[in-house]
Nucleic acid binder design. Structure first.
Lengths: 217, 217
DNA sequence: AATATTTAAAATGTATACATTTTATAGCAT
DNA sequence: ATGCTATAAAATGTATACATTTTAAATATT
């Protein structure tokens, strides 16, 4: 069989390699080297590089090409800061349109996190966490706002390996989720907004603390 | 002379064509047609399409390809809403680090707007407006936050043709700019934050009102 | 030795050609 | 006619080949 659309999953593969530090950091990536490594021509490589660049997984360093940026506490702080302000906003627009179905779906996700318990990898629990938030946010029907928030989450993905994965944090986080869902169900807009903001703030501060501890400067 | 790097300015050209409605709206763009139109092969076309997609100038409509989205009051509202929350944030981080040089540069830009007066095209005055804000914001030294804000401005660019260009609005806007700069100079953080927020809110409301008037639904 | 200039090599940008996939059309069965 | 399958056409994805630009090295110049 001849090769078919090899780059179908190239994007996901490269993103995982960046996340798992399989690619050199702060050092220009050569298109040809990448095309050998992944067994495709430079054309699909270029496409993927551009996408990853636009999502913050890669940066361009002048004319020296594109590179994997160092993890950076300042970036993480900014990402969480923006989320702290934008997510309450979209939630405020979502609550008046909230349906029982969505609340049920959100509850199911929380239960799954509880049930799977510590069997979840950190990536999986991060994904479920985003699904919980996203299903609430989508209700707002504000695609532009949603897309920016979604992009910020994507960018946070690079830092997922640094998130506290202790069970006590997971418990805390889940408590906050249930409180939030309760406020949403009762249509307590301001309370819900404050809860997400605090929820994000908590997660962000913990993450930045870890980064400052474990990153060299 | 043989052709050299033809796509150098392709990005800017296509963006202008989208802004000026030179490309069909809400209708799939064919790569081959574009490559003929711009006199380059499909490769650079694809590159540019991807960039424009990631900046909100184009959207993908499933597998039907990429298209110019309709102008949309909801999108404009979201963009200005996000700016209303993010720009005060970065300004708050900028003010403590503010230098006399930056304040001088900002003042020069405002003066240029005043002096050029109504000689400025709407695009030019939009550009100067952004330069004023950007030079203040860059002082914060928060690249991640700055990049998101900058991207939001870019996206607002599609709506620039709908901005009120009456002299009385320009006067109002300039008054707000001078007030803002004064607050920044005096390091009145909260006052400055409130002023930008109001400034953006004013502009956004006016724009959305125009859009609702002039867009068909 | 330090700086500038020239030359070679490496890397990226782009065009052409081909493969695969998607979409539209025509033919067939019900 | 309506819906389905098979076929053709169109469009996109990808590989290879070539052109241009960038980077590095080597040589010359002060």
């Amino acid at each position: 069989m001849i090769q078919k659309q090899p780059a179908q999953h190239l994007y996901a593969k490269m993103k995982m390699d960046i996340r798992d530090n399989q690619l050199p950091v702060a050092q220009p990536l050569k298109q040809e080297a990448l095309s050998e490594r992944y067994g495709v021509s430079r054309i699909p490589i270029r496409d993927v590089l551009q996408r990853l660049k636009n999502e913050g997984w890669l940066i361009t360093s002048g004319k020296r090409g594109v590179m994997v940026p160092h993890l950076n506490a300042g970036e993480a702080e900014d990402l969480y800061l923006m989320r702290m302000y934008l997510e309450p906003l979209i939630l405020g627009h979502a609550i008046p349109k909230m349906t029982h179905q969505i609340i049920g779906k959100a509850a199911d996700i929380l239960n799954e996190i509880d049930n799977q318990g510590d069997k979840l990898s950190i990536e999986e629990s991060g994904e479920l966490n985003w699904q919980f938030h996203a299903c609430l946010y989508e209700t707002a029907n504000r695609p532009t706002l949603f897309n920016t928030i979604s992009s910020l989450h994507q960018q946070c993905g690079r830092y997922i390996g640094f998130h506290s994965h202790h069970l006590d944090y997971l418990t805390t986080s889940q408590n906050e989720h249930y409180q939030l869902l309760e406020a949403v169900k009762e249509k307590q807009i301001n309370r819900a907004k404050n809860l997400v903001k605090a929820h994000i703030s908590d997660a962000g501060e913990l993450l930045v603390a870890h980064l400052l501890q474990r990153l060299q400067f």
